[in-house]
Design a protein around this nucleic acid. Structure first.
Lengths: 109, 109
DNA sequence: TCCACTACTTAGCGCTACTATGTACTAGTA
DNA sequence: TACTAGTACATAGTAGCGCTAAGTAGTGGA
C-alpha cells in the first residue's frame, strides 16, 4: 500500500466499512473481499478485523455468530442506530473535506 | 476538532498545504491563517509547524528565512520539483478515494 | 507594566493502518 | 495419509500523523 493511501485511509476506512454495511449485514472475510473488489486491493486482512473489533466496541454494529459450511464460524456485523448516526456524521465530515479539496484543486490550475 | 475530522485529515492535510503552496510561497503563520480562512478553523498551530518540518525534511519544499516587521523572522516555504511530484501523486490518490466514496454514497441511497 | 498579536518550536499522547504470525475448519488431491 | 488451498478470525508490535500543551521571541499599543 502506498504511504499516501495508508495515511488517507485513516478515518475514511471506518466510514467505508460502515457504508458497506448499510442495509446488508456482512462478516469480516466478506468485507475484505468486498473492499478488494472495490479497488482497495491491498487492504490487509488484519486491518479489517481490527477495525471490526473497534466499531463493535464503540457500539456501532450488532454482531451475530453464524456457522459456515467452509470453515470457522462467521461473525456477521450489522449497522445499528448508533452506527447509522456515525455514518451520517462521517458523510458530513467527508463532504466538508471533499468540497474544500475540490475547491483547492480548481484554484491551483 | 472532531474525532472524525482529525483522523480524516491524516494524509490529506499534507496535500492541502502543498496545494496552498503551489505558485505562492508562504510561511507557517500565514499558512495557519489561510487554513483557518478556508474553513479549517480548528487546526492547531503546532500541527502546521510540525507538518512543515516534515515536508522540509522530505525535501518537498525550499526554505528561506526573511525578517518580519512584526515579530521573529519568518520561514518562507516554496514548493520545489519534488514537492510538485508529491502533490501530483496526492491528487491521484485523492481522486481514487474520492471516486470510490462517491460511488458508495450513491449506492447506499 | 501588561496585554495582544505575530511567529516559530517541541515533548508526549492517542488513534489508526500495516506487518507478521498464528489458530481453526473444510475439501480436494497426490 | 499427508499436503495444499481456501475460508475465517485474532492479535502483538510498529510507524505515521494530528492534537494538546507549553514554551521562546519580537513588536506595538493601552
Amino acid at each position: 500500500m502506498g504511504r499516501q493511501m495508508t495515511e488517507m485511509l485513516k478515518g475514511t476506512l471506518e466510514g467505508i466499512v460502515l457504508a458497506l454495511l448499510t442495509g446488508k449485514p456482512a462478516y469480516g472475510y466478506e468485507i475484505t473481499t468486498l473492499l478488494r473488489g472495490q479497488g482497495f486491493t491491498e487492504i490487509a486482512e488484519g486491518t479489517v478485523y481490527a477495525l471490526l473489533v473497534r466499531i463493535e466496541q464503540k457500539g456501532l454494529v450488532d454482531v451475530e455468530k453464524r456457522p459456515s459450511e467452509k470453515g470457522p464460524p462467521r461473525k456477521v456485523y450489522s449497522l445499528n442506530k448508533q452506527g447509522e448516526k456515525e455514518l451520517d456524521e462521517f458523510w458530513n465530515t467527508w463532504s466538508f473535506l471533499s468540497e474544500r479539496l475540490e475547491h483547492l484543486r480548481k484554484e491551483g490550475k
